[in-house]
């Protein structure tokens, strides 16, 4: 009871914030006191797994919203949102031509909030393509690709390509007319690759015409392979931002 004394005192004096944060339970979770002192502001960056990719301090200019427009961060946010909505969609969608379309219809009519889930996934995908592209444009026009950030720019170009592929592989899954014909256009383009065009097309279609094989291939790429690959490159991308000295700013 003696140990509860400071806590109860704080409560009695109406110092709620201190009561809630300067106790053993809070510190057991966050490993550090409330980040209101420079020491704790630094420690929370070291001790929190979600924050530790950040430095403790950054240049003031890096905060200017009209410099970055938060585009890179928002691209990442869209990736997270797409992962969450995508996992939820996976509960209701089966990648087989016999049932895929009816699963989509069920999502729209039967599943609670199914249509909202699908809409958010689709529009977040569009948003991610736009944001990643605009992020590249921002980085270019601010000259942020220059040494020592050359390689991170290359990683960014790879991530842009992966974003296109992620979005495009998802396009087939509803198995409606829009999906199958858009993918027909796309696979025909890939089939025009010089020398190995036929093999490329066979590999991505999983045969000679778009059907069950195509659907399962694109599904696996969409929900497992490409997200993992993207996560891998994002890891490198974020790591390199730190290693290359934070986001580029004027010297």
């Amino acid at each position: 009871m003696q140990e509860m004394r400071p806590f109860l005192d704080d409560l009695r004096h109406g110092n709620i914030r201190r009561a809630l944060t300067e106790n053993r339970v809070f510190k057991s979770v966050f490993r550090t006191g409330y980040p209101s002192t420079p020491r704790n502001q630094a420690l929370i960056m070291f001790n929190n797994v979600f924050l530790h990719l950040h430095p403790v301090r950054i240049r003031r200019e890096s905060l200017k919203v009209t410099y970055t427009f938060c585009l890179g961060g928002l691209s990442f946010f869209m990736f997270l949102l797409l992962t969450v909505t995508g996992v939820l969609l996976m509960f209701y969608y089966r990648p087989a031509t016999a049932v895929a379309y009816s699963d989509m219809k069920d999502l729209e009519t039967v599943v609670t909030f199914g249509m909202l889930l699908r809409n958010m996934h689709r529009y977040a995908a569009h948003a991610m393509v736009i944001l990643v592209f605009l992020h590249m444009v921002r980085v270019f026009y601010t000259g942020a690709y220059k040494p020592p950030r050359e390689f991170n720019w290359v990683v960014g170009v790879i991530l842009l390509t992966l974003t296109f592929l992620l979005s495009f592989t998802g396009y087939l899954l509803p198995w409606d007319q829009l999906a199958i014909w858009a993918v027909t256009v796309g696979t025909n383009m890939a089939g025009a690759t010089p020398i190995i065009g036929e093999q490329v097309k066979f590999a991505i279609v999983g045969g000679y015409e778009i059907g069950d094989n195509t659907l399962i291939r694109w599904y696996v790429l969409h929900v497992i392979a490409l997200p993992l690959l993207t996560a891998l490159f994002m890891t490198v991308h974020f790591w390199r931002i730190r290693k290359d000295g934070g986001i580029a700013g004027p010297l």
Partner: peptide, 28 residues
């Protein structure tokens, strides 16, 4: 946006009926 705009879902995929025009996703 998800509440206001509805994602399109057209008829069941049919390889024998080619829409005119057939378009790729907008970014392609």
């Amino acid at each position: 946006i998800g509440l206001v705009l509805q994602s399109p879902l057209e008829g069941h995929a049919n390889p024998d009926r080619t829409p005119n025009p057939s378009k790729a996703p907008w970014y392609f």
